[in-house]
C-alpha cells in the first residue's frame, strides 16, 4: 500500500486523469481538469522521497475517483455548447 508507485503506474494514472477529464461535457470543467492534471503531474514528477510519492499517489487515486463520478454527472446533465466551442455540423 505504502510502497512507492512505479513509473508505469504513475503514467497509467496520468492517462486515466486525462481520459476522465476529457469525458466532461462542460467545457470549463473539462479544460480546468485537463490543465490541472498536466500541471500537478509535472510538478509532482520532481518528488524523489518514496514515502511522499506514495502519499501523493494515494491522494491522486482518490481524486481520480471524484473525477470519474463527476465526469459521468457532467454527461447526465448537459447544457448548450459555449460560444467558443465548435459544434459538429449535423
Amino acid at each position: 500500500m505504502s510502497a512507492a508507485p512505479s513509473r508505469g503506474q504513475v503514467l497509467n494514472l496520468y492517462k486515466q486523469f486525462i481520459k476522465n477529464a476529457n469525458q466532461f461535457n462542460n467545457y470549463n470543467f473539462k479544460e480546468y481538469f485537463l490543465r490541472r492534471s498536466r500541471e500537478s503531474f509535472r510538478a509532482n514528477s520532481k518528488i524523489q522521497d518514496p514515502v511522499e510519492l506514495a502519499k501523493v499517489y494515494r491522494d491522486a487515486q482518490f481524486d481520480l475517483a471524484v473525477l470519474k463520478r463527476q465526469s459521468i454527472i457532467s454527461q447526465l446533465y448537459t447544457f448548450d455548447k459555449l460560444v467558443v466551442e465548435p459544434v459538429a455540423e449535423k
Partner: peptide, 25 residues
C-alpha cells in the same frame, strides 16, 4: 458565429461562481 455553440461565456465571477465538481461530489 456559425459552427459554434450558443451559450454565453461566463465572466461575472463577482456575482457568483460555478460550483466546483469536487464540491458537488
Amino acid at each position: 458565429n456559425t459552427g459554434f455553440g450558443t451559450r454565453p461565456i461566463y465572466l461575472d465571477m463577482q456575482a457568483t461562481t460555478p460550483t466546483d465538481p469536487r464540491v458537488l461530489d
